[in-house]
């Protein structure tokens, strides 16, 4: 370590610089899965303290939209799009918007230092938080979907598909949210990006696409939440085309993998400045 003779050191009270021959052994790294689970558990418990009111807001917003659209839409394909869109909107609100805000604030306040000075893989922090936020959406999405089906008289038969839609749309949207939060130079900007993302999911996801102009339909196709909506909407019919459902879900999964990878990279970048 130090080969400098003690005499030249500032301060003479103690001889402190003794040459050290070999580097000391490092404490082990935290492994990916255990630390992911620890982060997930901690984030989930935050919900109890801080997030319950916001989860209610997310659900009420979607239920409100359903009631509002009931006056406009009678049934058929349009009703399916409205119900699916409102259900996935809960995922967008929590996983995209709230997670972007959370990471934006954590980064701005210096809270990332806590994780950065622990030997934890970046992916564990990002995936743990993203997973927890995606889990927060489960009750709200279920309530919205069931309420919508009852309101519009749609069958509840294939509601189980939500078991795939929520995690995959959740992965895609929470990955985007985490990336927004970690990349935005200021926390206000992270909030704006999260809000805009959610507004896009609301405006482009809830309304049936058939009557929209070409440009709007194109931007709708660019939004990852759209594929979650489509996958869910397809299952209301009497004979759902499962290949298309799988295709839509695969897009969600793909966006999820890419956006979570970007978020992990952004975390690494934000942690060491």
């Amino acid at each position: 370590m130090s080969v400098v003779p003690a005499e030249v050191l500032p301060g003479s009270a103690r001889a402190v610089a003794r040459p050290v021959r070999a580097a000391a052994e490092l404490a082990p790294r935290a492994r990916l899965w255990p630390s992911l689970v620890a982060v997930y558990r901690a984030q989930l418990s935050r919900a109890r303290v801080a997030r319950i009111p916001l989860l209610f807001v997310a659900t009420f917003q979607s239920v409100g939209i359903l009631i509002m659209m009931r006056g406009v839409v009678d049934g058929g394909r349009e009703a399916e799009a409205v119900v699916a869109g409102s259900a996935v909107l809960v995922v967008a609100f929590v996983a995209l918007n709230l997670l972007a805000q959370y990471f934006g604030q954590l980064r701005a306040s210096g809270g990332l230092d806590h994780y950065a000075t622990l030997p934890v893989p970046p992916a564990a922090v990002v995936l743990g938080a993203a997973g927890a936020y995606a889990s927060f959406t489960v009750p709200g999405t279920l309530v919205t979907a069931v309420f919508g089906c009852v309101l519009f008289g749609l069958p509840l038969t294939h509601l189980w598909v939500l078991a795939a839609v929520i995690p995959l749309a959740g992965a895609a949207l929470s990955g985007l949210g985490a990336a927004f939060g970690l990349l935005a130079p200021r926390p206000e900007l992270a909030t704006v990006l999260g809000q805009l993302g959610m507004s896009a999911a609301l405006l482009l996801g809830v309304l049936p696409p058939d009557r929209m102009p070409e440009a709007v339909r194109f931007s709708r196709d660019l939004l990852p939440s759209t594929y979650g909506v489509e996958a869910f909407a397809r299952t209301f019919g009497p004979n759902p085309d499962w290949a298309y459902v799988l295709g839509d879900l695969a897009v969600c999964a793909g966006v999820g993998v890419v956006s979570l990878a970007v978020a992990t990279w952004a975390y690494r970048r934000a942690a060491v400045r």
């Binding site: 790294r29 620890a38 901690a42 210096g110 230092d113 806590h114 000075t117």
Partner: peptide, 29 residues
């Protein structure tokens, strides 16, 4: 991170956890 433990001036990463869970999670990480 594998040599030292650091107490920064900010607690925002832990603020919404209970004391017990904050300590346990940090230990696990």
């Amino acid at each position: 991170a594998r040599i030292l433990a650091y107490l920064g001036q900010e607690s925002s990463a832990l603020d919404e956890l209970t004391v017990s869970l904050a300590a346990e999670t940090t230990g696990r990480l």
